[in-house]
Design a protein around this nucleic acid. Structure first.
Length: 497
RNA sequence: UCCUCCGUAGCUCAAUGGCAGAGCACUCGGCUGUUAACCGAGUGGUUGUUGGUUCGAAUCCAACCGGGGGAGCCA
């Protein structure tokens, strides 16, 4: 048995492929079977003159997603998907599939989500999962090569640690337990044992968010380092992101092509990233530069909309007299136009609100989604915003020695509107200040006994951050929604399949 | 919780108060290399649910159910 991605080593030889029928086409004496085996696609040609009646009969009965073993001679052929073809001599059928729901045409998101278990077989989803795999693998490699130890934080926790977000609760024998929203506090304990550690695991948030950036269950990589200050933390974050992106470019070129990802944008992801303080970010949002950029954006959307509507009118006039083939083309183009104009209309509704919010945002307020998008639009690579108002950040964040109102936190914002993919900072290491913060936030001191011990026995300056895996996958793949960045997404109203 | 858009054949959509339609999928037939192949024919409907307005409702109104996008919150 040979895998499709190894066919280059078997040109002009007999090979047996095992896989599933991705698509079929036929004429009187030829049947084209596109086979997928998990490693790629390969077109197999059955020629009636070259095979037995029995094999021809089997080939003509095959339907989409039927499982087969196919034997034949491998040839190199530029015309074909993947560059190779199999000239079939024998077929054995595991199962003829009946009525596979995901046809090679367009489908709506509700239908696809209901069939997520099958959707994963489609080409784009296949490519996304391969990129996700490369991201995970390169993250492990990055940290392992730097001497980080991977350790695991618990999923069950006994308290609503940070007191901010809404957690899922569950029964834990006679007690109540929560599903973890972050491994960070445990990461700090582990860093005091090993120096540099990272955790990689699922986290859970019961927030009722229905947006393209939110899941209720998602994966985070959280490094935590003893003796790192905020600057060292930021250097590590940008080095990590640059490493991962360059690895994906190197090893997932075909996948990025399938996803039609603009690689030039990714090639620019090299350290150092632009750094700006929260104060500078606020000034940028308030600036004329931002106003101008949004005005230009609005104008260009309007002219694009006009052009599309003109084209639509023309196509609709043509439709009546068009032949069938042309009608299909027109239908397809009209659907594209409708989708794009819907997006434009939404932008046009939103831009005035964005402008309003950005121009009027004041020091002390947290960024909204639109503010993050606007900030990143000014740059061509991810940016690092640091020095947030302490008020909007978590209790454990260390304050700036120069300015009590400022917390030593950093967010990395991805370009093209993908928003916050990394959040972190330097942790408070002074036991007295930390105890005061816990009290100020009305948190249960008893639950933090172990956390306070970390400041009692050899406290050191330390820092860390969390990378949201699905958001990173989204950004690197250039896809619209985190639900496509994880095999089985969990979000509001979605627990099946 | 709030704002906004949507729900028509298995799937994607059209029908803008007047006979519910097309493409794909499926079945049958045609085609000697197809690339979401193509060409011809056939099968396929309680227009999300309930109520209202009207001579007449997929279309207008109300409530509910389901979904998309967004706000808040966040990675």
């Amino acid at each position: 048995m040979v895998y499709i991605n190894e066919l280059a080593n078997h040109v002009d030889q007999q090979a047996e492929l095992k896989g599933w029928v991705y698509n079929t086409r036929s004429s009187k004496k030829l049947i084209f079977l596109v086979i997928r085996d998990g490693t790629g696609l390969c077109q197999c040609i059955v020629n009636k003159d070259d095979v037995s009646d029995e094999v021809w009969e089997k080939a003509s009965e095959l339907t989409q997603e039927s499982s087969v073993s196919i034997t034949g001679n491998v040839t190199a052929d530029e015309r074909s998907v993947g560059g190779h073809e199999l000239h079939v001599s024998d077929i054995s059928v595991f199962q003829v599939a009946d009525g596979y729901p995901i046809t090679p045409k367009e489908h709506g998101i509700e239908f696809l989500m209901e069939n997520r278990h099958l959707w994963l077989r489609s080409r784009r989803q296949w490519a996304i999962m391969r990129v996700r795999n490369e991201i995970i693998f390169s993250l492990h490699e990055f940290f392992q090569n730097k001497g980080f130890i991977q350790m695991d934080a618990p999923v069950f926790t006994g308290n609503a640690a940070e007191g901010t977000t809404t957690l899922f609760s569950t029964e834990y024998f006679e007690d109540q337990a929560y599903l973890t929203q972050s491994g960070q506090l445990y990461g700090e304990a582990m860093a005091m044992a090993h120096g540099k550690i990272y955790t990689f695991g699922p986290t859970f948030r019961a927030e009722k968010s229905k947006t393209r950036r939110h899941l209720t269950e998602f994966w985070m990589i959280e490094p935590e380092m003893a003796f790192y200050d905020l600057d060292m933390n930021m250097e590590l974050a940008e080095e990590m992101l640059a490493y991962v992106v360059q690895r994906v470019l190197k090893n997932c070129s075909e996948e990025l092509d399938i996803l039609e990802r603009n690689k030039e944008v990714l090639e620019k992801v090299q350290a150092p990233f632009p750094r700006l303080t929260y104060t500078e970010a606020i000034e940028l949002l308030n600036s004329d530069k931002t106003r101008q950029m949004l005005d230009e954006m609005e104008a260009s959307r309007k002219s694009e909309q006009e052009k599309l509507l003109e084209e639509k009118e023309k196509l609709e006039k043509e439709y009546g007299q068009a032949k069938k083939g042309r009608k299909v083309q027109i239908d397809k183009r009209l659907r594209e136009i409708n989708m794009r104009t819907d997006d434009i209309e939404e932008d046009l509704r939103n831009i005035p609100h964005w402008r309003e919010k950005a121009l009027n945002i004041k020091w002390g307020e947290d960024f909204g989604g639109s503010d993050e998008t606007i900030l990143t639009m000014h740059f061509d690579r991810p940016i690092m915003v640091h020095g947030y108002p302490a008020e909007v950040k978590a209790f454990y964040m260390k304050r700036d020695a120069q300015d009590e109102k400022v917390a030593l936190g950093v967010d990395v914002l991805a370009p093209e509107g993908y928003g916050e993919i990394v959040g972190g900072g330097q942790r408070e290491d002074d036991p007295d200040i930390l105890r005061k913060r816990i009290q100020e936030h009305d948190l249960p001191e008893d639950a933090f006994r172990w956390y306070m011990d970390l400041r009692k026995f050899g406290s050191v300056p330390h820092s860390g951050f969390g990378l949201g895996l699905e958001r990173a996958v989204c950004w690197i793949c250039g896809i619209k929604h985190v639900r496509e960045a994880i095999p089985f997404p969990r979000m509001m109203g979605r627990l099946y399949p």
